[in-house]
Simulated scan of single mutants.
Amino acid sequence: MKFAFLSEYQIRKAEREGQLENLKGAGKPLPRAGDGDFSENVGFRIMAEAGALPKEIELKQEEEAQLKILQATTDPALRKDEMKKLADIQLRRAIQEEARRKYYSQG
């Protein structure tokens, strides 16, 4: 049997048995395509719900906050300092992401 047939069969069976009713997130849009690896997003969401954000997510939030600060800064000397802070955050985030990729590619 083909995978498409088997998966469609399992979905229809779950519908008949009511297993797809009142699911968490029902009626909400799916994640945007190209928004990273779906399995990673699910893992990050589970960790966030448990109150344990990975360091790279914390750094992403820090980066977004620093970008807002940089956009609001007009003084050239202060902008330079804020750009250094942003570059440092981006570097640390890239290191975290690379470490995660290497860890998962070892399996």
Results as ranks from 00 to 15, higher is better:
Y9A: 12
K80N: 06
I95E: 14
P54Q: 13
K60W: 05
L67T: 15
E62K: 07
D37R: 01
K80R: 03
E21Q: 04
Q106K: 05
M83N: 10
Y103A: 15
E21I: 01
R16M: 11
G36R: 00
K28I: 09
L91S: 11
A77Q: 01
K60G: 10
D37W: 01
S7C: 03
M83K: 02
K85E: 11
D35R: 02
P76R: 02
A72D: 14
K24S: 07
G36K: 00
E17R: 06
Q19W: 09
K68G: 14
A94C: 06
L6N: 08
K84L: 06
P76Y: 06
I57C: 07
L23G: 10
A94N: 14
R101Q: 15
E17D: 13
S105E: 15
D75M: 00
Q96R: 05
Q19F: 08
A72F: 08
E56M: 11
E63K: 06
I95W: 03
N41L: 10
Y103S: 15
K84C: 05
P31I: 09
L78A: 07
K24T: 09
L59V: 07
Y103E: 15
L30N: 15
A99G: 10
L86Q: 11
A33N: 13
G18E: 12
Q71P: 04
A26I: 00
P29T: 12
E40Q: 10
F38I: 07
A94T: 08
R92D: 09
A72Q: 14
R100Q: 13
R12K: 14
K24N: 08
T74F: 05
E64Y: 09
A99F: 08
G107M: 12
K102I: 15
A65P: 02
L91P: 00
R92Y: 02
A33S: 15
R93Y: 03
Q66W: 08
G25W: 00
P29D: 11
K13T: 12
N41Q: 12
L67P: 02
D75R: 00
A94G: 11
S105P: 07
E98D: 12
G43H: 02
P31G: 11
K80L: 05
P76A: 04
S105G: 13
L23K: 06
G36T: 01
A65C: 08
L86T: 10
K13Q: 07
E97C: 02
L91T: 12
E17F: 10
M83W: 03
T73F: 01
P76T: 15
D81R: 00
I89Q: 02
M83T: 12
A52Y: 06
I69P: 04
F44V: 14
R79V: 00
